[in-house]
Design a protein around this nucleic acid. Structure first.
Lengths: 363, 363
DNA sequence: CTGTTAGCGCTTTCAT
DNA sequence: ATGAAAGCGCTAACAG
């Protein structure tokens, strides 16, 4: 016996998954449900236009065949998508995570779909990603700030969709805008330090993007006006912000100017780093050293002492940005306040709350 | 002249932008450059296939007309995109931000394009977003974990693209996998606490997603085995993790079981909250209370004392996930280790480093 | 190196 | 309420 032949040998050859599923199309479903393609299309997109009976049959067929509509074909035919593109410079800090929460919350219960692209503070990547989004014919775009490349700006200007610029403030947005002034924010913080009788204030900043730069300018202007500006008390780095970077920049600053008595930190991560390092060095905060951060992240309230910071309306920005966009898309003829300036709020906490501020003389 | 800063509210009526730009097509460019459409297409996608002279003419025309290729038409015609979809449950904590950095870094210098979708720990949203991605014919998908809805799993199984599941470990991934065991991680942490002679350890956790749940199981199993398990020392909440939530859960735990002498925190945010609250209450860490976190985020090393934590390979996971995906897409026939188990590392710091651990008796 | 032809899978428009 | 026809703008395949 045993003229055994190969047909008992099973090779469990796993075919590449990319060959699976020879694309079920609308036509396949139509045939299976014994209707025309357009009816299937309607059953999906406009159920009320189709009789209950047919709809049911179609839906069953869709299920049975595992049909997944082809977005490209749909977009090509209809010239529209439900996609909102959101360009962020970073996802590593919680700043944009909060904005994003606002966007998502507003997007819930709408037919839109948010897609995020992270350009990591690289204007060139940003430009590329704007291109990528635009090629997809988004319903709208949310972009961060006003500091795109010339090319990118031209793309946005020419774009065939509504655009909202967020997280900064300027006179002539491409289209819509919601944000706040970084300059003014820093002015508030700087004045607060002066009011607390700090007389040798410094500034530390990492990842000095254009908005951070404007904050530095705000700080500098106030200090100059008060005759308290010393450029050697300004320490920045192009590297990314982090708590560790805060301790480092603080060490640098103190090494150069040991008598520095207050620091405006470009963000709360740095401020936290300064606080922790100050504690390690037994420097009394706020008596010997005042610390002010920026953004008022969740953790800032929980340190001992709490970190004074400038609270930025991140969630609100995201939420309202989406709402503006939606309104602009759906009712382009309605009057719409397309330029919104939110206000920031200085949150004073222990890190700048001197017991007896007048006991410290200037120089 | 010198009016102080005051906020103007600008009501500026803007004409709808959606009517701009009556779509320049490949044909328009072709006509302008006096070549055929396919030549324009090639000049863009495969420049070396076109003579320098023609290429130049075409590129000039593209520039002049402000032509933007239509992704939908391209996708429909070629049946492919360069898009990698990445589904994350959250962007609020730095965990996925780190993974994302890895993905982006690996994606640089490839022709691919990463798109993120945040399903905010909602399996239903996740399912919807998987659908959205799939409709776009992505080149590949990166999904978080194994705990999708049945429907979503079926979609992934049937998907016509390569898929890599990350951040967890299991025997039968849909396709590719790279992650680590949450159970084992927690076992390591729990054993460490016992080794440090903590005898009344508790657990706090927020947002108990399936992976967090597995960590709790790991902790529980070890403690039971050591005869140290007390369910009343386990406090969890479905709410989101944060430092503030850490202080709160700690307060709850201590209220119920004041003699708790160590806490395994479900993540570093909670651990930081516990530490700060302990300091506020003048509880000595690590002598009276040991604290162990999870993830080893950047800030954990910088506290005083530093936070003991379980370092998870987030960046590496993202980086290698992308690489696996790319290899699987581009060389589906090559042998490829499609199931990678990364190891975690317990980082012992001051928060569990007792001076003299044996001086503390059990009960 | 460049062009011609024929769709990709869907939706729009116009009938019925 | 359902269907037929005609593309949307691009690229693959095959010439030349």
């Amino acid at each position: 016996m045993s003229s055994q032949t190969s047909y008992y040998v099973y090779f469990t050859y796993m075919e590449p998954r990319s060959l699976k599923n020879k694309n079920t199309t609308l036509d396949d479903v139509a045939r299976a449900a014994d209707v025309s393609a357009i009816t299937v299309s309607r059953a999906i997109r406009k159920p009320q236009m189709v009789s209950a009976k047919v709809r049911e049959r179609v839906l069953a067929a869709i299920d049975r065949l595992g049909y997944v509509p082809d977005a490209a074909a749909s977009t090509l035919a209809s010239k529209r998508t439900d996609m909102i593109g959101f360009l962020v410079p970073s996802l590593t800090n919680n700043v944009f995570a909060d904005v994003l929460r606002g966007v998502y919350d507003a997007c819930d219960s709408t037919p839109y779909n948010v897609q995020i692209a992270n350009f990591r503070y690289s204007p060139l990547d940003e430009e590329r990603m704007i291109r990528t989004f635009l090629r997809q014919k988004p319903a709208g775009l949310i972009v961060t700030g006003f500091d795109q490349t010339t090319e990118a700006k031209a793309l946005l200007e020419a774009a065939d969709c509504r655009i909202v610029q967020i997280m900064d403030s300027q006179d002539d947005p491409v289209d819509l805008m919601i944000g706040f002034s970084h300059y003014t924010s820093a002015v508030d913080a700087a004045r607060h330090l002066i009011k607390q009788e700090y007389r040798r204030p410094g500034f530390i900043g990492a990842r000095m993007d254009p908005r951070a730069q404007r904050r530095l300018t705000g700080f500098t202007d106030v200090m100059k006006e008060a005759g308290l500006f010393d450029p050697r008390r300004v320490v920045t780095t192009p590297a990314a912000s982090s708590i560790g970077m805060g301790t480092q920049l603080f060490a640098d600053l103190i090494a150069k100017k040991p008598d520095t008595d207050a620091i405006f930190c470009n963000n709360d991560d740095l401020a936290a780093g300064v606080l922790l390092e100050a504690q390690r060095r037994n420097i009394d905060v706020p008596e010997q050293l005042g610390i002010c951060g920026f953004n008022d992240l969740e953790f800032s309230a929980h340190f001992n002492p709490g970190l004074t910071s400038v609270a930025t309306p991140r969630y609100e920005t995201g939420h309202r940005a989406f709402e503006m966009l939606q309104q602009a898309i759906e009712s382009p003829d309605d009057q719409l306040d397309g330029k919104i300036n939110l206000s920031v709020r200085l949150v004073e906490r222990g890190s700048t709350q001197r017991e007896n501020s007048s006991s410290f003389d200037r120089d």
